[in-house]
Design a protein around this nucleic acid. Structure first.
Lengths: 346, 346
DNA sequence: AGGAGATGTGGTAGCGTTGTCATTGGGGAT
DNA sequence: ATCCCCAATGACAACGCTACCACATCTCCT
């Protein structure tokens, strides 16, 4: 069989071609690899050559193509960051911390949002792994088996953040939601509340919020104070929704004397609702939230809440991932702890 | 010169090798390209072959390497998304909209955060362009010249969101901050306020907030009501900070009868501060914010504010970018408009 | 029957970069 | 002077994938 040499990949017809390392090499009269070395700041390059190359690169407006570089080196500076939501709530602050640390280390976060959907989480992670990230940071420890097998396949470091009540795949950063819930239960009991209620949202999708509530109820029961009633909204947690949930709960069970909210947004809504309804806080009803957002400090009645270190959680998650380059992180758990802010609402 | 064939890139010693398309091809007994076609869902593949390939791919847990694919096709499904901050404020909601639309279209947002720093914006964009994204979405229209030249060099679609008072590089989505400011000035004048103040944050870093304030002052002047005083915090906008700024402003200039805030966070802080200080709202002092966050609706005194379509802005920005595949977007401006929420605070 | 097209499959090269050697040319040690 | 070593530079192939063409069948016309 004769095969005529046919130059399969000719230059695209109309399309302009991206400036490449080779263009820079030609212009500066050196070899490709020398340009590569200069661009990467590799050692063993004379100042003169470096200067000539730099000048040529600037003149051409050359930007290295990381696609090619990463393909060759089998490594990238990408980090897959997978969170359930970003519209509001705690994740933007965690992301902020993650981004700050990663960027400083020259890494590039790639964001994936699951909408609290396990199937989407698998899809999102698959799409990100296709870019051969050097690591993964994800929220929560409750994942589809497919997530675990994909991670195992790739053999890259993974850090899970939020919750440390359950074992992470490799390493975890966060707080113990169970312990926080127990602390709140004890606080309520100690303060003499006897008919506590609970309000949550998102249909308790992130398992950790369900676990937190269950721990809350268990501890209350141990202290001889059964949970009087609860109201779980299927919708996202908002201030407005928190007001509505509170109204519903108190209409159904008016003798409730304190409410533990799964988050501060709902708690603030509840606080405002009670004020409008003419209830005195905390005399008629005690209110305690979760997360300790800044706004709760500025309200006329300072909101009591469990303060969680969200930004710090992102920082530590990113640091832990970075440390994987030095030493294996398997088994590392970072407990950042929480603090109960005793405001005026409980 | 004799050159011995030396297999330069042999298999890495200890390191495990990623499963490749070729592995799948070998296992299923077909050619590389056939596997490629199956994985991409390309046409002209018989059902039998497809099935055999899929089985082999599943068996090996194969994930395509997009690095290689994108390098070959000179295109990726990545979209660079550049915003000034993410910790709180308006951007998470915009990002949510962007992410929803892009993901649905099979695109992958890559996040870059500039911390309101023009130099960082250049750096961040450069890093992202190195991955040959198919498009860019960025906040604001006020960029370093280097940003413009990098974009021009790459010849990819760019959508700028937030503000449409200034011409975007290619296409823009947002509202007119100037018109919004003018509407607020008119509202104040019409309501009989005569000694208005203004409170901003971030040192007015995003130029659009300065432009907004200037438009506000100009219109007030036109209506014969000079701005009485203003207070610009250099720090990020927070509820707590808004309270402090308000206190400072009112201490310095106690006869102010209304305050326009650059954002709702500060406005809520101001509202709470005034309540604590025993001022009646809106009789003693009128308060109006900017952005129309949900929380303002739930406060005991409903916050008046300029409602901006943040989620929608993200959605439209992403859609506009997607539409660039069909028709050029140069010159396209999408004005999403705003609505003044007349609450109880003004 | 003979061709024209449609359909499925494969071979090859190359996307832009970098790892691995090879090569060159001093400079210092002997 | 001779040797060795190291710093500076270069040649080449390969990372994993897909565009481009070639080719073998297999219809379906005329």
């Amino acid at each position: 069989m004769t095969r005529i040499k046919t130059s399969p990949d000719g230059p695209p017809p109309g399309k302009i071609r991206r400036t490449t390392l080779r263009d820079v090499a030609r212009l500066s009269g050196v070899s490709d690899i020398s340009v590569s070395r200069v661009m990467r700041g590799a050692p063993s390059v004379s100042p003169g050559l470096r200067e000539r190359v730099m000048a040529a690169a600037d003149a051409l407006g050359y930007t290295p193509n990381r696609l090619a570089g990463a393909l060759k080196t089998q490594s990238s500076n990408l980090v897959a960051v997978v969170v359930p939501s970003i519209g509001n709530g705690v994740f933007p602050e965690v992301l902020d911390g993650i981004e700050t640390v990663l960027t400083k280390a020259g890494l590039q976060p790639v964001l994936g949002i699951t909408q609290y959907d396990r199937a989407r989480e698998v899809q999102v992670l698959r799409d990100m792994l296709a870019w051969t990230p050097m690591g993964v940071i994800m929220a929560g420890t409750d994942h589809d088996p497919a997530v675990r097998s994909m991670i195992a396949q790739q053999d890259i470091p993974v850090v899970e953040f939020m919750d440390i009540d359950h074992a992470p795949m490799q390493a975890g950063v966060g707080i113990s939601n169970r312990r926080a819930a127990i602390a709140v239960a004890d606080l309520l009991a100690d303060r003499g509340y006897r008919r506590p209620g609970y309000i949550g949202a998102w249909g308790e999708q992130p398992d950790r919020s369900r676990a937190r509530r269950e721990a809350f109820e268990e501890r209350l029961a141990e202290r001889g104070i059964p949970l009087r009633d609860r109201e779980i909204s299927p919708k996202p947690a908002t201030v407005e929704g928190g007001g509505r949930s509170t109204e519903r709960l108190l209409t159904r069970t008016p003798d409730i004397d304190a409410i533990f909210y799964a988050n501060d947004d709902q708690a603030l809504g509840g606080l405002f609702h009670c004020q409008r309804a003419g209830l005195r806080i905390p005399q008629d009803i005690g209110i305690i939230g979760f997360n300790g957002i800044g706004m709760g400090l500025a309200t006329p009645v300072v909101l009591s809440s469990v303060e969680t270190p969200r930004y710090q959680m992102g920082v530590e998650a990113a640091r832990l991932l970075l440390s994987a380059e030095q030493a294996p992180i398997r088994g590392r758990i970072v407990d950042l702890g929480f603090r109960i802010r005793q405001g005026e609402s409980l």
